[in-house]
Computed example of a mutant assay.
Amino acid sequence: MIFVEPHGDLAVVRLDHGKVNALDLELCDAISRTVSSLEADAIVLAAAGSVFSAGVDLRRVADGGADYVAAFLPALSKAFLAVFDCPRPVVAAVGGPAIAGGAVLVAAADHRVMSGGRIGLTELLVGVPFPVAALEIVRHATGRHAARLVNTGVVVEPAEALRVGLVDEVVTADELLPTALERATELAKVPQAAFALTKEQLHRPVRTRVEASRAVDDPRVTALWQSPDALAGIKSYLDALASR
């Protein structure tokens, strides 16, 4: 599901969950545990295969219904925030598609390197809203571009992802991991306590908005994901994909 490759004082955390690293309850829990427990000087978040992550496992949502949604959405937000709040540098190495929740995971990193695939925030196209943590992480990464990216669900190539702030560098496939490790090494040179405090300060506006909004927004998000209309829409979307 996840494996960790030591690279000296760094750790490469590779998602290895099915063909497309779809985010389900188990993978979200594994991301949270792994990122929170690592003691490496910096982390590179990558995929074992050609797809970084295709986002939420909608089949699990459709099959599990309201009870699964009630357990899954908090775990999803926890995974995003585990990456975003990690006191050590996190560099995302994106070698293939990063869609929906996969794009949010990328946005949660401190530095993002991409070599191929497409990236985008497609939740609204499926008929479900973002948890507040995901929205705020995307807003932090992309600023004035956030509303267009979220509202249109546009999926973009690496060059456009660079322009709108979803990634920080575009490189070749051969350069992806070496560049990510190089950036992680550079960030790890900052004394750890100073880096962690500065990261906390930079992220504080996001965390303040998340905590202020969760009690109001997250129940409404969960209710919409659990609604019969949303679950039926997800099933229709999956059926349409299967028929192509």
Rank of each mutant, 00 (worst) to 15 (best):
A62G: 14
G64W: 12
A92W: 11
L124P: 00
P97R: 06
A92Y: 11
V91D: 02
V126Q: 06
A71G: 10
S50G: 03
V51A: 12
D29H: 14
A66I: 07
L76G: 00
V12A: 10
G101F: 00
I31P: 02
P131G: 11
V61E: 00
H17T: 04
M1P: 13
I119D: 01
A146P: 01
F52K: 08
D63P: 00
K19Y: 04
V12S: 04
S53Y: 10
G120C: 12
R148N: 02
A79N: 11
H111W: 12
E136I: 01
L125M: 15
F52R: 09
A108Q: 06
G101R: 00
A134I: 02
V113Y: 11
V20H: 10
G55R: 08
V83N: 03
F84C: 05
V126A: 15
R33S: 15
G101V: 05
L27I: 10
D24F: 05
G64V: 13
T122W: 00
H140T: 10
G120M: 08
A11W: 07
C28T: 15
V132L: 04
P89E: 10
L124C: 02
V113G: 07
V56T: 13
V12L: 11
Y68T: 05
I99E: 12
V83G: 03
H145C: 07
N21F: 12
G65D: 08
M1N: 13
V106S: 01
C28I: 04
R88M: 07
G101P: 03
V113Q: 11
V94C: 13
R60E: 14
A71W: 01
A133T: 00
G117V: 12
L25P: 02
A30N: 10
P89Y: 08
V91P: 01
V4I: 14
E39W: 00
A107S: 15
P74V: 09
L105W: 09
A22W: 01
C86F: 09
I43A: 05
S115F: 07
L105H: 11
G96F: 06
G120P: 13
A98D: 12
E123V: 00
A46I: 02
D24S: 04
L81Y: 02
P131F: 07
E26T: 14
